[in-house]
C-alpha cells in the first residue's frame, strides 16, 4: 500500500502544475515591458536574471539601465497564457513571449522579446545563459 500511496503523493507534488506561480511570473514580465515603455531602465533591469543582465551589459558595452532601453522590446500587451514547470516559466503576451526562472527573491526574466522559430528555440532580443 505504501508503494501505491507514494506515487499518488508524488503526482500531486510534481506534475505539471502549470498555473502555480504563473501570476507572479506574468506580473514580473509585464513589469519589465511596462518599465521599458516608460523609459525606466533601472526598474526594467531589476526584473532581469543576473546572467541576462550581465550578458546584456557585455554585448551592449553600456550599463544595463541604458542598454535595455535600446533593445526594442515591445509595449506590454495582454497576457494570453502562462506555463510554469519547476524552476521555469513562459509568459505569452500579445506581441511578446518571455522566459523566466525562479530566484531566491522571486521570478526574474531570462529572455524577453522572443519570437518563435518553428521547432527551433525562440529568437530573443534579450537573453542570458
Amino acid at each position: 500500500m505504501l508503494k501505491l500511496t507514494v506515487p499518488a503523493v508524488l503526482l500531486l507534488g510534481l506534475a505539471g502544475c502549470g498555473s502555480v506561480g504563473g501570476e507572479a511570473a506574468s506580473a514580473v514580465a509585464v513589469r519589465l515591458l511596462t518599465a521599458v515603455a516608460s523609459d525606466d531602465g533601472a526598474t526594467a533591469c531589476a526584473t532581469l536574471a543576473p546572467q541576462t543582465r550581465a550578458e546584456l551589459e557585455e554585448s551592449a558595452g553600456q550599463p544595463c539601465d541604458r542598454a535595455i532601453l535600446d533593445e526594442d522590446l515591445p509595449a506590454p500587451g495582454t497576457v494570453t497564457g502562462t506555463d510554469v514547470y519547476g524552476q521555469w516559466a513562459q509568459v505569452r503576451l500579445t506581441g511578446d513571449t518571455l522566459f523566466l526562472a525562479t530566484f531566491p527573491d522571486g521570478w526574474r526574466v531570462v529572455a524577453a522579446g522572443c519570437t518563435p522559430r518553428g521547432s527551433r528555440p525562440y529568437d530573443c532580443a534579450v537573453q542570458g545563459g
Binding site: 503526482l11 514547470y85 521555469w88 516559466a89 522566459f99 525562440y122 530573443c124
Partner: peptide, 30 residues
C-alpha cells in the same frame, strides 16, 4: 499490474513536467 500502471502514469505526468522544464530552459515551447 495495478502498481505498474500507476507508476507508468506517474512517470508520464512527472516526465512531461520535467521535460517541459527543460524545454523552457532551452527557450522552447512546452
Amino acid at each position: 499490474g495495478a502498481i505498474f500502471l500507476l507508476s507508468w502514469i506517474a512517470q508520464f505526468i512527472a516526465g512531461r513536467a520535467a521535460f517541459n522544464e527543460e524545454q523552457l530552459g532551452n527557450l522552447e515551447d512546452p
